[in-house]
Amino acid sequence: MIEIKDLHKSYRMGSNSLHVLKGINFSVEDGELVAIMGSSGSGKSTLLNILGMLDVADSGSYHLDGVPIKDLSETKAAQYRNKFLGFIFQSFNLINYKNAIENVALPLYYQRIGRKERQEKALKYLERVGLKQWATHLPSELSGGQKQRVAIARAMAAEPKVLLADEPTGALDSTTSYEVMDLIQKINDEGNTILVVTHEEDIAHMCKRIVHLKDGVIVEDKMVEQVRAAQYVQ
């Protein structure tokens, strides 16, 4: 699904440049649930941004579902993001003047799906994250966990090939974190490929595979026994 070869990325900061990714080789199969771990500055967010086509690598190749991701125009990148990827952010990034269902329907709108179908689909995904009755509420009327679940529904609405979650539990307390991870595991159980960037050990162990990043290189890549989040959720 994801195929990365010898990925380099450095940022210029005035006169000196900061080498963030120093040759990443990495591949993800269909249906995997991968945790990318590392301390701040290890390059994990940069990697996720490159995977998310929000940033471009200096060198190396990146294939997503067999499609080479290279030299994309902004319009093309936007199209690919819409078609291939779903984003889950630490700070939820819901649009605050739109209600839950409108937020979920947004990626569908960019796919030029008709209004009625959009509403139906959005409602279906809201139901899957257990927020059907909150459909017409604004983000300001929702709790943190609910906001993240709306964000997950939004990420899934476009039926992307890969879900990219950047610290999805970073802004949540542990109970809510486990609820969110439970949801992510269930989505993965249905066969969706998910990448989770985190620095929390317990969250990482709820994935099936952990990739450790340190100073821009992968220092460890191991399969782990998945801890089900459901057991922590009442």
Partner: peptide, 16 residues
Amino acid sequence: TKEIGIRRALGESPWS
């Protein structure tokens, strides 16, 4: 700005 960033991450084209 942030909202526009979100929209673009979700796949809205610059022209739109």
